[in-house]
Amino acid sequence: MSEEITYREAAGAAIHDAMAADPRVFIMGEDVGHYGGTYAVTKGLLETFGPERVRDTPLSESGFTGAGIGAAMGGMRPIVEIMTVNFSLLALDQIVNNAATLRHMSGGQFNVPVVIRMATGAGRQLAAQHSHSLENWYAHVPGLRVLAPATVQDVYSMLAPALEDPDPVILFEHVMLYNRKGTLDRSAAVDLRSAAIRREGRDITLISYGGSLWKTLEAAALLAEDGIEAEVVDLRVLRPLDADTFLSSVRKTRRAVIVDEGWRTGSLAAEISAQIMEEVFWELDAPVGRVCSAEVPIPYPRHLEEAALPQVPAIIAAARAALGKQGEPA
């Protein structure tokens, strides 16, 4: 049975259903309880599950993330919410040095089945300390699984398998997705391994994830009006990358543009581009293109913020350039 709901509601429903299904699941983070979550994802959970399982924490990312890791090692299935990826840097030591390594350091004696959710991305005029896209920092680290659900279905359905995963999972929710509506089938299962083809096409592969996926799909629709059939790959899982899916798409179209809200230098887009060069170089008909954020702290004013982020016209221009077409569509 499917329903039309928002990404925010789907994320909240996923937590609700997980807590209802398994008493070991609890959530903690800043303002998740009484306030209902900074992005209102956890609204109503305190009333349903009580303060033991919906815990407001002090403003101490390192402290409560560490507590979540400890609880996971002790047999619980904690969900840790960090307000934005920018703040998660305070917990980087816990995540990278502890969560990601303990199974290895303990010779397999301890697992860390924690799920750490955090908001990411720009577009809400939250300025340079709340708007960055640092998914690639985590995607760099062995021992972590990194998810970027872009659809209502994924944000709901990825949580349960993430909690079942014996290793730490980082789950990114792009701030511009919360109000987006989509179709949800609560009984549908998804995997945490594969990328998804969100639109099929033969002329060029557009690779994206998270908040940029919808801009990419919009660009693909406009390109189609101009006779260019773009295939759109939604990465879904940022670590480990499902290279097979995007490589076989590029093998088919012989051209690729990667749309990534991270900064270009050292970006996920750079990694994907490198893998394309390594694996399908001889199939290419054009250099791999990248549409990334401008290399500046994300500005506060709306027009500057918009100018700094990947936008539909830039995606279209990059796709056209890869096809040897200059300028605006006819």
């Binding site: 012989r254 008909d285 054009a286 250099p287 350039a321 890869a322 096809l323 040897g324």
Partner: peptide, 11 residues
């Protein structure tokens, strides 16, 4: 060539 900058492409 019909590709980027007049490059010869597969087609």
């Amino acid at each position: 060539g019909t590709g980027p900058d007049g490059a010869v492409v597969r087609d």
